[in-house]
């Protein structure tokens, strides 16, 4: 299907927060994602699991527009993300369109990627002030409120180098939330953390799920956590969704052989 044939906008009544339609991603001759179709409903928490190299991180990176796609289309809130309308047809998006669309998406990274030359508070205020154009006082109030929520308000004037991994990741979550995104992406946010501080980050995410109506997409290796908080779990294998379903079903009674193998391998490693 040529991208000109996709709808300019998703019809009312069929507008998931995120929709991947036949999305393909290749690096040279290697196909990382193969005709991916995936919907995420508003307020839904979807977790992506799978062996490394299965393309799960790529899903998030494409949605954040850190990667371009080679085929298909992604819609956010009913509007095309990777494409834009020109003369009634869809063409690949330009930087301006991407900037407009990106503002509804936030992301947290495996290695936090806090700005080392700014304090925790400055990290949180940077986006609201520079990108959204908020007055400083308002950005500060918003940032402090969020730092309070992630339990980092006492450390607001510290630079990232003075913070532990768990603390940095909590600041990074506050920084992403300060932009008021509709969709939050968590890319292996606990993978680079020492075991004893993983809890402080997962607890913050748990609170988000409980108290906010955010749409979330998460890649993780922590099966227990995924099972606890997800509305739906997708198991990726070789660039395709091998199996998906509610966590109790996918973890408790996996249907596909690949899923069973993966889950038992993960359990053994624990």
């Amino acid at each position: 299907m040529d991208h000109g044939d996709y709808p300019l906008e998703l019809p009312e009544g069929d507008r998931p927060m995120v929709r991947f339609m036949n999305v393909t991603k290749r690096y040279g001759s290697l196909t990382v994602l193969d005709n991916l179709c995936l919907d995420v409903a508003e307020g839904e928490m979807v977790t992506v699991i799978g062996p490394s190299g299965s393309g799960k991180t790529t899903v998030l990176r494409m949605l954040m527009t850190l990667e371009t796609i080679n085929g298909g289309i992604i819609y956010v809130d009913g509007k095309p993300l990777t494409h834009m309308e020109r003369n009634g047809r869809l063409v690949p998006a330009d930087e301006r369109h991407l900037r407009k669309m990106r503002s509804s998406i936030g992301m947290c990274f495996q290695h936090f990627n806090l700005f080392p030359h700014m304090t925790a508070l400055q990290n949180c205020m940077e986006g609201p002030v520079q990108v959204l154009g908020l007055p400083k006082a308002e950005a500060r109030a918003r940032s402090e409120e969020l730092l309070e929520m992630v339990g980092m308000i006492e450390k607001k004037d510290q630079h990232p180098s003075r913070l532990s991994g768990g603390q940095q990741q909590r600041v990074a979550i506050a920084r992403a939330l300060a932009m008021r995104p509709k969709v939050m992406l968590f890319d292996e946010v606990t993978s680079a953390l020492d075991p004893e501080v993983i809890g402080e980050v997962t607890n913050v995410i748990r609170r988000l799920v409980g108290e906010h109506n955010l749409t979330m997409l998460m890649v993780t290796h922590q099966m227990g956590f995924a099972r606890d908080i997800s509305d739906r779990v997708c198991f990726f294998y070789r660039g395709k969704i091998e199996e998906q379903g509610p966590p109790d079903q996918l973890f408790g009674n996996p249907q596909r052989e690949r899923t069973q193998q993966f889950l038992s391998a993960v359990k053994e490693a624990d």
Binding site: T65, L66, R99, R102, S103, M107, N113, G127
Partner: peptide, 14 residues
Amino acid sequence: PKGQWEACRALNMS
């Protein structure tokens, strides 16, 4: 680091 560029993108910075 590449992550710094990606964080800027994620914050939608110009």
